[in-house]
Design a protein around this nucleic acid. Structure first.
Lengths: 140, 140
DNA sequence: TATGTTTAGTTGTACATACAAATGTTTTTT
DNA sequence: AAAAAACATTTGTATGTACAACTAAACATA
């Protein structure tokens, strides 16, 4: 009857999402911020001067959500913004750059956590399938 | 460099989750509540008198989250609770039962939306893989 | 039987996230 | 050049979700 728990993507995806988010929070706890902020900071470090629009697209989140994230990173002195007309460019500060390695280590911890259980090959495969489905659903 | 967008389960899972949640919100919009409430109500209709603990386990959400959901369903007059010692049993009201069919239709709409894009076989397979991985990660 | 421990549920609080409306800026059209 | 359309960002507000702390009930054990 209630087979939606096994065959409805809404349910199955959100379930995994909750589980992985919890693991990620743990893995990123020592950095002092949550995974999404860590990855966002990485993106900004890799490509300083990105427009917010681009960052939001890369992370696949709503622009308003990105504004909130950048605000917090700025409050902590990890990035700064410069406005050019209607676009806003984001740069890492030295304090931000100094965290790069720590974030990479947190990311590695996360990978180890789930790869130890799922196996590396299966994890990679699953990730690829998820990207694939997401791309299709977004018409990309 | 920023390959986390493709190979980090935290990221890939959450991305799909956001996409599917958006579709589900659309599909469930005519019912007047969001997908999670719909599915919860189905569960309660199928097995009247469930304890909240059981429902939370079935939906794989935190007990506190479930309390909030049940509260809202109760406010709308779709379920009611009876306390027996420390456990709380949840029953659908007639108004709740009356919605069963509408929820099923919403669920069907959702399935059609994504199956039209991903294909039925691929969708089912993906769902099964997600359940599988979730079970493994939770040691089930 | 009394006291300690586990269990079920609730409440306070916090965070990620989204949408819709508002603001300010550039581009296009007339 | 003026008016209109498109665009990037921000702000207000709402929702799903969780954790930690709490309450109250049940169970266990001494």
């Amino acid at each position: 009857m209630s087979d939606f728990r096994y065959n409805c993507l809404y349910f199955t995806t959100n379930r995994l999402s909750r589980i992985i988010t919890k693991m990620a929070d743990e893995a990123f706890a020592p950095t002092g911020f949550s995974p999404m902020y860590g990855y966002l900071l990485l993106l900004i470090i890799e490509d300083p001067g990105s427009a917010q629009k681009k960052l939001a697209e890369q992370l696949d989140i709503a622009p308003s959500t990105l504004t909130r994230f950048i605000e917090k990173l700025e409050q902590r002195g990890l990035v700064h913004r410069t406005t050019h007309g209607k676009t806003v460019l984001v740069y890492p500060t030295d304090a931000g750059r100094a965290l790069e390695n720590e974030i990479h280590m947190a990311s590695k911890r996360l990978h180890q956590m789930y790869e130890r259980i799922l196996g590396k090959t299966a994890s990679d495969l699953l990730s690829r399938e998820l990207v694939n489905s997401s791309d299709q659903l977004e018409g990309k």
